[in-house]
Amino acid sequence: MAALPAKLGVVVTAPLVLLARAVDPPLRWWQRMAGQGGMAAVFLLPNLAIFGVFVLFPLALNFVYSTTAGTDILLQGRSFVGGAQYARLLECRDYLDPLTCREDTFWTAAANTLVFVVLQVTMMVVVSTITALILNREIRARGFFRAVFFFPVLLSPVVVGLIWRWILQRQGLLNLVMVSLGLEPEVWLNDRTYAFAATIGVSVWAHMGFYTLILLAGLQAIPKDLYEAAEMDGTRPARVFWRITLPLLGPNLAVVLVLALIRGVQIFDEVYVLTGGGPGTSTLYLTQYIYEVGFASVLRNPGLAAAASILMGLVLVVLTLCQLWLSRRGEAKGAK
């Protein structure tokens, strides 16, 4: 019996072995030419090329677009305007009131995004922490529940949006259930507050599985001994949570916070399918604003969209740096 898997292994790895033998001589020749330090660059080059073509180049191109004006999508048909697009975006009489700004929808979208991110990230962290704590306990069918909570992460955001639209629309599942229970139906997605809450709830539902997984890994990395030591000392469960679990989960919570923040600012697909930014502009977030200004509106303005996306990118960079600084400080404190 034992001989079969061994033979199978040889068969399976044979193509790889042949491939390795084939590329070995040219790589050796290369190393003689480039030296050992140069080889590192050689191996990095393919990935770097992909990264350059699909990330760095568009980033630079985007910046160039943000300094041009016109409706033409091709660069040669556009005129250079310098920082005019940025000035247009930032021109406001009163920064606390979006309606006094020249690009009032940009500021509305920014304000919406801010409120959305604060509420959504808070909810995300709390809900995924609680879920992870429950899934970390010795409950029945734990594997099943872990899979269930992770499942939405595997769905395409568009599918998520469609599912919830089907539930929340005027003649959707939720209203159907409410009517059958003798309750008045609600126009969930046409009410400003409900629609806003729905975008938060749906995005939390769709992504919490991922964060739960990160936190679950963190919880499982906490040695059981610590809990037993606390048990011997008669530590109450609440105190165990606040004084032992939470501090030791800190690094994982920091990761969850950064990722949730970044993805929160970038929210687009689910919301676009679910509410389309409505009713009115009540669920219009920055990414959708950029998309509509740049591509979807009749008088498309790629320059303005590019400028807005650069501004949004700056916010993300600042957020990330803050979080990196926070987590580094936390680590330094732990190691001191």
Partner: peptide, 24 residues
Amino acid sequence: MVFQSYALYPHMTVQQNLSFGLQN
């Protein structure tokens, strides 16, 4: 109990480790 792994709370100082159980 003294555990094989010591089970000291890594985020607390020695002082806090010693007093944690008593504060309960």
